[in-house]
Design a protein around this nucleic acid. Sequence first.
DNA 1: CGGTTAATTGAACGCATTCAACACGAGTGG
DNA 2: CCACTCGTGTTGAATGCGTTCAATTAACCG
Lengths: 217, 217
Amino acid sequence: MTLAYDLEDPRTARPAAALTEVMDRLGSKAAFDRDEEIYAQDDEVDYLYRLVSGVVRTTRVNADGRRQVGDFYYPGDLFGLEVGPDHQFSAEALTACEVQMVRRSSVRAFAGDVELDRAILAATRRELQRAQDHVLLLGRRSAREKVAAFLMSLADGRDGDGAELPMGRQDMADYLGLTIETVSRMLTQLQDEAIVAFPTFRRFQITRREALAALVD
Amino acid sequence: MTLAYDLEDPRTARPAAALTEVMDRLGSKAAFDRDEEIYAQDDEVDYLYRLVSGVVRTTRVNADGRRQVGDFYYPGDLFGLEVGPDHQFSAEALTACEVQMVRRSSVRAFAGDVELDRAILAATRRELQRAQDHVLLLGRRSAREKVAAFLMSLADGRDGDGAELPMGRQDMADYLGLTIETVSRMLTQLQDEAIVAFPTFRRFQITRREALAALVD
DNA sequence: CGGTTAATTGAACGCATTCAACACGAGTGG
DNA sequence: CCACTCGTGTTGAATGCGTTCAATTAACCG
């Protein structure tokens, strides 16, 4: 018998079947339009969400309007797994998307179900991994390195060197702690050096992977 | 019956008794001198650690020598709870300290123990909260705001407005993604404005809490 | 096609960094 | 007790990176 907490690699793991099943059985599916809010910052934490299709971003806006993007979520990802009674971040549909959601109180009825507890833990660990990676991305890195690392993370896991860029420049900027202009400048810089190519605003191809990798750590 | 994952507030919670007990029973206590390494970056994740006395910092150093401090841990905190097979960060004794440690494989023998699983989850959630707060601290904040927020976090939870500063300026800088000079300048700036006072390098007092709070979100 | 939003580019500014010198404090030995 | 030293922290001046503000261009959608 083993515990999930020291076996799975949370960077690649998907929600365990046990949790997916409970969510499908006790929850409901909802659709959100582009830019629609799924939950708000300071809302009570009440639901668990699994993204079925589309892309979601979590953001936090502070008093003077500065915005921090927490993370981006893709189909299969669990989100809304926040700690504490209220949401620190809000979640918004970046594209039109479908979300499977279930009240936590419903899941709680299955407390003690080992499989289920394990799945929740695994998802929490995945979230922790993301947050730690994000800390490393934000601290003591140049704008060039931040943008390079961001592109790299979008591209790896893909088969070729081409990848979709589902978010706009503003979202990239707010994720990386930069301005939209700086992001744009770094992108053109990387393009000029023939490290990446942008056929359109929302799609890119890595042309010199070693050069890009050299900028990431 | 309730699950830990939506009840405890991880900002204040301590390790559950069940886990503390298992660690004490199956683990051993070790002492570390100031600046001694407890585990290294890229080491296999093998143990769970509970800090008994002293202060610990986790750090990651990348190829070109830039250092990021992950977090600081105080007595009662669990650490080494990292995700994935290898440590992303190393842990070092910031002051001389005592650590209770236990092999994960020993803890694993108790898999299915609901209390224990709950304790591990609670600790992971606490860690997630810290990492998310750290992301918010690093993104789109001025040096002044970062330093203010850091002092604030050290001071709150304390009774009065005085607090210890167990880490040196370099550690603060590497935690905040700043240089040591900038940290120093911000500290003297806050002192000049009579917002905080430093009787010694390692101890400070908040003299105008509202002014400091205004800088933190 | 216009009309609108998103992205890029340019120029000037400012904040944090860099490099360097100096001050302070703790510990040591004369 | 003072002089010396070493580590740590502060301060100063100059540089540079990212920001800000403004204008231009490109994509998208009717």
